[in-house]
Lab assay of single mutants.
Amino acid sequence: NQASVVANQLIPINTALTLAMMRSEVVTPVGIPAEDIPRLVSMQVNRAVPLGTTLMPDMVKGYA
């Protein structure tokens, strides 16, 4: 099963992502692949992401 990127904390809108904000977890539906975590660092979210939410490509500016 593919691990996805999950929010490790509440991430406010327009926040630049850091490693501490993300974790890898096997979830359904599948979100951004966990191997993309290094690429996500310093990218901004375009909405508030609650703790435990799977990051989807449309939630991260410049990812999709």
Rank of each mutant, 00 (worst) to 15 (best):
S24Q: 08
L40W: 02
L51I: 10
V30G: 07
D58T: 13
D36V: 05
D36W: 06
V5C: 04
E35T: 14
V5M: 02
V6P: 00
T15W: 14
I13P: 07
V26Q: 08
I11E: 01
D58A: 05
T53Y: 13
S4P: 01
N8K: 06
M56A: 11
E25F: 08
S24D: 12
A7H: 01
M56Y: 05
I11Q: 00
D58R: 07
V5H: 00
A3R: 05
R39A: 08
Y63S: 03
P57I: 07
L40T: 02
R23A: 04
I32R: 00
L10I: 12
A48Q: 13
G62S: 10
Y63E: 03
V41S: 07
D58K: 05
L19F: 14
N14F: 14
L10N: 13
G31L: 01
I32Q: 01
V6E: 02
T53E: 07
S4T: 13
P33G: 12
I32A: 02
A64R: 11
T18Q: 14
V30H: 12
I32N: 00
E25K: 05
V27A: 09
R39F: 11
N14M: 12
V60R: 00
S42A: 11
T18D: 04
I11M: 06
V27L: 06
L40V: 09
K61P: 07
I11H: 00
P33W: 08
P29Q: 06
V45R: 00
Q44G: 05
A64N: 13
A48H: 12
G31C: 03
T18P: 00
T53S: 09
G31M: 02
G62H: 11
I37L: 10
A16G: 11
P29G: 05
P33A: 08
A7V: 07
V27M: 10
P12D: 11
D58Q: 08
N14Y: 12
T18M: 11
A20F: 15
V41R: 08
L51R: 07
G52S: 12
A16T: 05
N8A: 11
L40C: 03
R23H: 04
Q44R: 13
Q9P: 01
A48T: 14
M56E: 07
I13H: 14
L55A: 01
N8I: 12
T54D: 00
R47H: 08
N46C: 06
D36F: 09
A16Y: 14
P57H: 09
G31A: 03
I13K: 09
V45I: 09
K61E: 10
K61R: 15
V30F: 15
T18A: 11
V45S: 10
V27N: 04
A34G: 07
T54Q: 04
T15A: 10
S42R: 06
M59Y: 14
D36S: 07
S4V: 02
G31P: 01
R39L: 09
Q2L: 12
S42F: 13
T15F: 12
M56P: 02
A48L: 09
V45G: 01
N1Y: 12
A16E: 06
Q2T: 08
N8S: 12
T28A: 10
D58E: 11
N14H: 13
A7P: 02
Y63T: 03
V45Y: 00
N14W: 11
S24G: 12
S4A: 04
Q2V: 08
V27Y: 03
E25C: 05
L55I: 15
Y63R: 03
